[in-house]
Amino acid sequence: MSAIADSPPVVVLAQAGKGYWASVWSRLIKDKVAMTALAVILVIVLAAIFAPYIAPADPFKGSMLRRLKPIGFPGYPLGGDELGRDMLTRLIYGGRLSIFMGVLPVLCAFVVGSSIGIFAGYVGGWINTLLMRIIDVFFAFPSVLLAIALSGALGAGILNSIVSLTIVFVPQIARVAEAVTTQIRTRDYVEAARVSGAGAFTIVRMHVLGNVLGPIFVFSTSLISVSMILAAGLSFLGLGVKPPEAEWGLMLNTLRTAIYSQPLVAALPGLMIFMVSISFNLFSDGLRSAMEVKQ
C-alpha cells in the first residue's frame, strides 16, 4: 500500500491527436488483403500509364501468319490474338481504357450523386421526397440493363458509355449520400453549430461534408469494379469501345470465337477484369473497416 502511495505520480501527457486520415492510413497499412489489392491496382495502373515504354510490341500491328498463337510462343509471351497481335501488349494497353472507364463514370457520379443526395438530405421535406422518388425510378431497372439501354439510345462510343454509366451510378451514390446526410443532420453537433451561429452553408460545408464524404467515398470505390465490368460488358456488346482499340471487354468479345482453339488466351482479358475489379472491391472493404473505428 505504501509502495503505491510513494511511487511518483505518473504523468500522462495528452497526445496531440493524429489526423483522422493518418489514423485510417495506419490501420489500413496493417490490413494485408487491402494492401495486396492496392499493390495489384497500382502495378496494373502504372503499367497502363507507361504502356508505350514497357509493352514489348505494337498493340495494333498484327500478322495474318501468326494468328491465335498459344501462351509462350516465341515473341508472344502471352500468345497472339485473332489478328496476330501480341496479347501481352494489348492487355497492358487495354488497362488504359478499361480502368479509365471504371474510374471516370464513378468520379462523375460521385460529384453529381453526392450533390443531389446531400442537398436532398439536408433540405428534407417534400423536396427530399420528390428527388428521392425520382431516384427510385432508376432503381426499377437492373443496372446492366439500364447501362445497355442508355448506351443503345445514345449510340456507341467511349464518351457515350461514360455518360450512360454515370447515369447508372448517380442514383446509387445519391441514395447513400441522402441516407447519411439525413442521419448527420439530426446530430447534436449540427445543432451545436447552429447554436453557435453557423448558417446552413457553413453547416453543410463543415459538418455535413466532413462526415458524409468518407462513407460515400468508400461506397464509390466499391462501384469502380462494377463500372469496369459494365464498361467491359458494353464493349463486349459493341456499345462501348470500337475495334481496333485495345480494351479488355472488347478483346473478350473478339476472342470469343477462339474459345475452342486457344481457350487460355481467350480467357486472359477476362482474368484481367476479374483481377482488377476484385482488387478494387477488396481495397474498398479494407478502407471501410479502417474508417469505421471512428469513435
Binding site: 446530430r187 447534436d188 453537433y189 445543432e191 451545436a192 466532413g210 462526415n211
Partner: peptide
C-alpha cells in the same frame, strides 16, 4: 449560447 446533454454527440467527430 448553449451546452448540450451529451458532449460526445455535440462535438463533430471529424474535426
Amino acid at each position: 449560447s448553449m451546452i448540450f446533454q451529451d458532449p460526445g454527440l455535440a462535438l463533430d467527430p471529424v474535426y
